[in-house]
Write a protein that binds this DNA or RNA. Sequence first.
DNA 1: TAGAAAAGTTTCCTATAAGAAACATTAGGC
DNA 2: GCCTAATGTTTCTTATAGGAAACTTTTCTA
Lengths: 200, 200
Amino acid sequence: MEPVSQNKDEEITEATDPDHLGKMIREARLQKGWTLEEAGKAAGIGRSTLSKIENNQTRPSFDIVRRLTKALELKTPQLFVQSGPSDISGRRDVTFAGQGEPQDTATYSHELLCTELTSKRMFPYISTIKARDVSEFEAWIRHRGEEFMYVISGELTLFTEHYRPLALKAGDSVYYDSGMGHGCVSTSKENAKVLWVSLE
Amino acid sequence: MEPVSQNKDEEITEATDPDHLGKMIREARLQKGWTLEEAGKAAGIGRSTLSKIENNQTRPSFDIVRRLTKALELKTPQLFVQSGPSDISGRRDVTFAGQGEPQDTATYSHELLCTELTSKRMFPYISTIKARDVSEFEAWIRHRGEEFMYVISGELTLFTEHYRPLALKAGDSVYYDSGMGHGCVSTSKENAKVLWVSLE
DNA sequence: TAGAAAAGTTTCCTATAAGAAACATTAGGC
DNA sequence: GCCTAATGTTTCTTATAGGAAACTTTTCTA
């Protein structure tokens, strides 16, 4: 009942299953109850081409795959699956309260959560936002991707480009494009505590 | 300073920028400080091919793109960008405490967060896990993807396949493969409250 | 500044993807 | 059972992706 051992030596060699792509696409099409004709039309490709792709009798171009992902609403990362040993398949990682991995900067004090799982796609962490004056707000933080925040305790102001500053208190949550400039300032006397989950 | 208006009529037509792919790849390569030769070798493709891809003089196959994403550690979803109007570019979405969208089942009571942003990739929600006996644990929940949970209040037991049951209390967090069977039971007298963020 | 080496681009050729149409297979109606 | 319609597969052809090598441009060094 112990975690699956993570073999560090094992290379992320070639694609796990050469038939993966076709299988995924066929599964998605049947899920929608579409025929080759219908799915092909939706994606703008011929039914013969689609047949060959689903049966892995061809190595489709990226364009074709992209059109299919759109038409079939496929989850793109699944198509790139990079094999078993190094991903999180069948694994879990716990971090008990206050046991996260500390990472401090001038204005933020982060506690990284679940850092054992290195190949996960979301990055959860808890930040203690030091109480300071709103006027102290400095530069925008920007990083490609999406971010979700949940206020655990305290009160703070979230600044984002294109929007008015937003006053938040415990229990409030925000989801935003993290490529858009953003930053927080605690407006309570004590420090504010926020849970973030970052993607990408 | 109002949110960018979301034009529902606007179709998610063709790829936004036909040169997007090449730009992303060149950017990633230069980020690593690699020459065409080096990057090509790492991905197992010729430098001439890579040159043409970066300059968008060719429509690469899916295989080639996948090899490049691995070698250059590219974030795959970025390659599929489905244009501007329907994605979350430059947007944010707030849900104040207790204002989520309710969604109840027999054993769980969910409150979906930030549901205005329909094209986001992570799905945050708060669940109230009703107090009941551990023996009442029923069937595994399974859904492709990854999941992060953070215990807001109460105490509960997390069951997951391949592992021993795990006792959790406020402030604890777990990250796991949600394709692996999982389920929760509140072990405190009162209901337990959990924040989940689901991906995929 | 010249010369050499390295990085990037273009040309040429072969292998193959993608679509059209022919062919095969399955499902339903009588 | 047979006939028909619909779905899926296999040719066949054309356009093009991908690699090798020739060519061009840039960078480094003396």
